[in-house]
Amino acid sequence: MLTVENLSAWYGEAQVLREVSLQVAEGEIVTLVGRNGAGKTTLLRCVMGLHARVGGAMSLRGADLTALPPHRRARLGIGWVPDDRGVYATLSVEENLLLPPVTGPEPWSMEEIYAAFPRLKERRRSPGTRLSGGEQQMLAMARVLRTGSRLLLCDEPTEGLAPVIVEQIGDILRQVKDRGVTVLLVEQNVHFAASVADRHYLLAEGRVVDALDNAEVRARQDELLEHLGI
C-alpha cells in the first residue's frame, strides 16, 4: 500500500529524518513508536506532502507520490488525522465532516457516521472547537472515514484522552481495519499500540532502529517504556 524509501527531512540545518525506509501492506495497522522528537510526526507530514525539505521516495499502491502536492495525495486516498486534531473553529461540526471531498470507493455515509458517533450528531450545528478534546478527536477520525480514504495517517489519536475514550478509538480503528482500510499510527501508548496494531516500527533520532511484532512488544514492554521515558 505505502512504501517509503530512504526518506530524509530537514528543518533548516537540522536533519530530523535519516534515510527512513518502511512498508505498510494493504489492510494493516502499523504504528510508529518513539520518543518526542524522534521524527514520527515529521514522517506523517512527509507522506502527506506538507514538508518542504525532503529527499527519498514515497509511493502509494505503486503510484509515485514524491512530486505531488498535498491535495493530490489526499485525493489518492490518504486521510490525515493531525496531532492537533485539526478541527475548524469557523466550521460547524457537520461542515467539518463535509469539507473534504470523498476520495475512496467505500466512504462512510453521514448516517453511518452519526450512528457510530451520536455525540457528533447532537452537536452538529456547534462550531467544531466547542467540542471537548475527546469529541474533537472523534470528529477528526470521522472526517477521514467519511472521505473513504484507504490509508489513514493518525497522529497520536489517544494523547491526553480519558481511558474510556481511548477504548472507543481502539474500537473504531478495529472497525476501520475490518473494512480493509490501512492505518499508519503514531502512538506513544505502547499498550494501546499492541492492542490495535499488527506491527510496529521503533524510531529514534530520525532512524528506524527496530521493527517489532505484537509478541515482541509485549515481551519487551518494560524496555520500550524505559526507552520512551514514560
Binding site: 502527506m48 506532502g49 506538507l50 502536492p69 498535498p70 491535495h71 495525495r73 489526499a74 485525493r75 490525515w80 493531525p82 485539526g86 469539507l99 473534504p100 471531498p101 476520495t103 472526517r143 472521505t147
Partner: peptide, 9 residues
C-alpha cells in the same frame, strides 16, 4: 495547510 491536506486545492 490542513485544508490542502484534506484534498482541497
Amino acid at each position: 495547510e490542513l485544508t490542502r491536506a484534506l484534498g482541497i486545492d
